[in-house]
Simulated scan of single mutants.
Amino acid sequence: MKKKENADHISTLLGIGTTIEGSLAFKDTIRLDGAVNGKIFSEKGTLIIGERAVVEAQIRVGTAIVKGTVNGHIQASERIDVYPPAKITGDIQAPVISIETGVFFNGNCSMAKPEPLPVEKKTMETTREEKKSG
């Protein structure tokens, strides 16, 4: 059964021509159509990697929907769905994984739920929020 992303619920869009280097943290749903190099994190959010996106990052999210190019590891606490013309070079880990015919995947696949993040990461987000308000 093919699960499609719902564009009505995308809270952030990084379009074609956008390039980000560093760490990207988000809530809700984000769609990437540009280039990202670094780390992508969301405790429960959904990451949609569009067909023209090129991502070189360590990814840890709730749900990942991949249609573009990813070089790096993907960990999802809920699921990973991969659709053509996706190209993934790196390991993937999630309790539910769906890879459609026509996808290029070179890496290891583990269907175990990723370990919870250390408390240190949550503390960093709290500190960042305190800086904004103070």
Rank of each mutant, 00 (worst) to 15 (best):
P114M: 07
S133V: 04
F26P: 00
C109N: 03
N71L: 11
K131V: 14
K121V: 00
L32S: 01
I20E: 06
T127S: 06
A7E: 04
T63Y: 10
I99M: 12
F104G: 00
A53N: 08
I16A: 09
F41S: 00
E100M: 10
E5H: 08
G45A: 09
K121W: 13
G22Q: 08
P95C: 03
T127C: 07
L13S: 00
Y83V: 04
A86H: 12
G62S: 11
V61L: 11
I65Y: 13
V82C: 10
A7Y: 10
G107Q: 00
V103G: 06
A7L: 08
C109T: 03
P85F: 14
R60C: 06
T63G: 07
Y83N: 02
K44L: 09
D28Y: 05
E129A: 13
K44Q: 05
M111L: 06
A112T: 00
N71E: 14
G38A: 11
K131N: 11
K132V: 15
E51I: 11
I99A: 07
Q75D: 05
I59N: 09
G102E: 03
G90E: 07
N6D: 10
K2F: 11
P85Y: 11
S133L: 12
S133D: 09
E21V: 06
S23H: 07
A25I: 14
Y83K: 04
E21A: 04
E130K: 15
E100W: 09
F41L: 05
A94W: 11
K87V: 01
G38S: 08
S23G: 13
P84W: 13
T18M: 11
E51R: 14
N106I: 06
E125K: 05
K87R: 14
S98A: 14
V82I: 15
D33H: 01
G102M: 07
R79H: 05
D91Q: 05
M111A: 04
Q93A: 05
I80A: 02
P116T: 04
G34D: 08
A86W: 11
I30G: 07
A64P: 03
E125R: 06
K113N: 03
K132S: 12
S98H: 08
E120K: 14
G90V: 04
D81A: 13
T89S: 11
P114R: 02
E56P: 07
V119S: 05
V61M: 09
P95Q: 09
I20P: 02
G45N: 07
I92Y: 10
A76Q: 10
G34T: 10
A76F: 13
R52T: 15
G17N: 14
I48L: 13
T123W: 09
E120N: 02
A94K: 06
K39A: 07
G134F: 14
M1F: 12
I48K: 03
A86S: 12
E51Y: 09
K39D: 08
T123A: 14
T101Q: 15
T101F: 10
I99S: 06
T46L: 00
G107V: 01
C109F: 06
D28M: 07
P114I: 09
G45Y: 13
V61C: 12
I99Y: 08
E130H: 08
A53D: 06
